[in-house]
Design a binder for these strands. Structure first.
Length: 312
RNA sequence: AGGGCAAUAGCUCAAUUGGCAGAGCAUCGGUCUCCAAAACCGAAGGUUGUGGGUUCAAGUCCCUCUUGCCCUG
């Protein structure tokens, strides 16, 4: 009763999710979209995130878009609760939730068995200060002295993970045991669809999309958000394109470089998404240029969105 | 036409007095439990524009040609 639609950026997930929702509606089965994307949550980040406009949504209800200000920090743990609540809400109303996500960790945190240890801004701030002052080697050495097992699993140069491990140890008193869970659905009735696009096509699409974003006023959007604290948003300020345009505004790079780096960064992002999704054997892959794409997706997901329609 | 400067990885550039041709980006692969559009790790990639010469040894010095840029007519 829950449909997941995943795939790399610019693969056409949003478009397919809308057509799939319409397909359900045509069959007398209401469906709504639940966004599982770390950047679509931000109000005002529209052009650069390729967020579907209200008009494009065509009356299909979308959950978890435009729920945060740009200065606020999006986190997986918060998102997990909100998304699970949105899915439960849909199901209680007899609506098929179509979860659309490019952030693999977000998607897995929703449907798989994740429980995140606590966090504390004060503890974290101290650790981050130490990281900046003493360097990653010192922090990793400390982690190694109190929790050798997790120190062995975390690459020393990855200061961010070292900080997180030390934070959890400080808050729980125990070792940092967090590990990716098995790929097994915690929620019942989940069916996962993946949009498959070959690399050359995807690369070309990304280039075209960045060109289109620039033409649509991406730079103005970033300028406006910069007036509203975009630089203070630890998550939002790192979004592809936004980060590069801010660097251009700050005189660190040229506009041409900002644009080029946005394309390169987006391609790299797409590759990382691939590495998450390709190894997930639960995904039913659909070819992006299949002329019967919507029907195939509908057939695999099942008339009730419970996967019972699959089998070909 | 004459004079000067340049030519090194896909791109931008390093390489001490001649002494094992490197880096950043791009490309390819990988990691992943609270900033994840993040953070991090690894790999491949070269007949140093051409042809000769000097030398134990040439990206480096000498000559030829090619190409590009600048200056002067």
């Amino acid at each position: 009763m829950t449909v997941l639609l995943v795939g790399p950026t610019a693969s056409g997930k949003s478009g397919l999710s809308l057509r799939l929702a319409e397909r359900y509606r045509a069959a007398g089965q209401p469906a709504e979209v639940v966004s599982a994307d770390s950047m679509l949550v931000y109000r005002g980040m529209d052009i650069g995130t390729a967020k579907p406009t209200v008009a494009e949504r065509g009356g299909v209800v979308h959950h978890l878009m435009d729920i945060l200000d740009v200065q606020q920090t999006a986190t997986v743990a918060d998102f997990q609760l909100l998304a699970r609540a949105a899915i439960a809400d849909c199901r209680s109303r007899g609506v098929v939730p179509i979860v659309v996500g490019g952030s693999a960790l977000y998607v897995r945190a929703i449907v798989d068995d994740f429980s995140f240890p606590a966090t504390d801004p004060a503890v974290r701030a101290v650790l981050e200060e130490e990281l900046a002052r003493d360097g990653w080697a010192a922090l990793h050495a400390r982690l190694d002295s109190i929790d050798p097992a997790s120190a062995a699993r975390i690459e020393p140069a990855n200061g961010r993970r070292v900080v997180r491990a030390l934070e959890v140890i400080a808050l729980t008193g125990g070792p940092y045991v967090a590990e990716l869970p098995d790929r097994r659905y915690l929620l019942p009735g989940v069916i996962q669809l993946g949009l498959d696009v070959d690399r050359p096509t995807l690369d070309a699409r990304i280039q075209a999309r960045v060109d289109a974003m620039w033409a649509a006023g991406f730079v103005d959007e970033v300028a406006a958000l910069a007036e509203h604290g975009l630089r203070d948003g630890v998550t939002a300020s790192r979004a592809l394109g936004y980060r590069q345009i801010l660097r251009w505004f700050d005189g660190e790079i040229t506009e041409v470089e900002a644009r080029e780096q946005t394309v390169f960064g987006t391609r790299r992002f797409a590759r990382r998404q691939d590495s998450w999704f390709r190894k997930d054997e639960r995904i039913h892959w659909l070819n992006h240029d299949d002329p019967q794409l919507v029907e195939r997706a509908y057939a695999v997901a099942g008339p009730l969105g419970d996967g019972v329609g699959m089998g070909d």
